[in-house]
Nucleic acid binder design. Sequence first.
DNA 1: TTTACGATTTAACTCTATTTAACTGAGTTT
DNA 2: AAACTCAGTTAAATAGAGTTAAATCGTAAA
Lengths: 232, 232
Amino acid sequence: MSIAKVLYVEDEPFLAQIVSDGLRSSGYEVSHVADGQIALQYFINERPDICILDIMLPMKDGYTLAKDIRKINSSTPLIFLSAKTLTEDVIKGFKSGGNDYLRKPFSIDELLIRMESLLNRFPKQANDHPEQKQLVYEFGNCRLDTVHQLLKTISGEYPVSFKETSLLEMMLLHKNQVLERQTILLKIWGDDSYYNTRSMDVFLTRLRKLLKDEPAIQIMNIRGIGYKLICS
Amino acid sequence: MSIAKVLYVEDEPFLAQIVSDGLRSSGYEVSHVADGQIALQYFINERPDICILDIMLPMKDGYTLAKDIRKINSSTPLIFLSAKTLTEDVIKGFKSGGNDYLRKPFSIDELLIRMESLLNRFPKQANDHPEQKQLVYEFGNCRLDTVHQLLKTISGEYPVSFKETSLLEMMLLHKNQVLERQTILLKIWGDDSYYNTRSMDVFLTRLRKLLKDEPAIQIMNIRGIGYKLICS
DNA sequence: TTTACGATTTAACTCTATTTAACTGAGTTT
DNA sequence: AAACTCAGTTAAATAGAGTTAAATCGTAAA
């Protein structure tokens, strides 16, 4: 989804400023309105993706506003923010069409996560965007097939393990550039603890051994920083 | 909607009794379980319409349980109930697949209205209509008929068992993507205990044997993670 | 109810990717 | 040059995965 538009209705200017800033710095486009009457106009004109409503408002209270919005649109998520803590107020909030109800004071982070939840913005899996990554790499006289995990060199074709494939692929994506050790570790191993660095060394040895017959290809170490894969 | 089934996971007996009674007197059908490990079994067998999970549980905590449930089913609403009040716990709850998070102590009425809200937002469906799933899959030179449980390969047509069919079908639904072992186990076997993984290995061997004459089709292992079915 | 059979699980064993360990060497700092 | 840190090599240990066969389970026919 592109940038989500938020309609935020709140009459207390100080809080409104803090929350608006918080939302904006998380990438939302925020329209702030202080009055319930005007808010409905905004809703109609701006078609926000989500609304955040205070309950106590001048002219038209939050419950009424929510009901009015629901007459026009039944699906846009509505979150109530209120200092009213009684259960019956919460129930009134849901009955008037709200989808969530946060008691003041609340944390911005909690508001954000609840908004995301209502907007279904959780990255389901990496599967969502089957990113069009390259499957086969040619370099020097070699070829790495990341699908079948095969490395063809001048001296033959060898099956390589998943980690070997990942490591070589990562270097190929940065060939002739410096690639930091830590970057590799974090990406492939998930953390850069001592034993994982030792483990990576072992894999480097294996890759170097596989590529030893290709004089034009070298994995160079840059001490204290990382590696550079030299190849055409 | 007919009577909604609730799976309620809570290890504190006194609270569990109160909440269960409250839900029942509001017309819900409640299954109460005190243990996270067993809860997953219940989920698979009972197919509840909504789940209410405590966070602190013996055997398997609420977050982990939620993640496991999400591997099997992505739409059933999940509500966390917890004495943990920190924002970061709330965020963890949503990140692990929860749809709402209520801090203890909470009022039964608030729980009820939030349940109702979620049940309206995710109208019963996924479970009732096991969405028009594909019955026959074509891949490479093969064809899997899930109705008659027949696998046609280049070398003939073979009857396959229910588990073989399910396993292959699941891989086909994720072909050329990484599919986690645990996801398969939870979905097909219902739990990921040791012997089930061994059993799955046996089925993989059988599938690989059946598909061995199709060089373009391979079930590749990604150690520590899962499998990838390579095919067109 | 018993038997027979196929489906699935359990068991025992093998193989292999990855990690751990121990040691060696190379570049840096003092 | 001594001391130190980082990196490379090799081998052993571990844990994940694969294979095969035997045991068990469940169901339908006898």
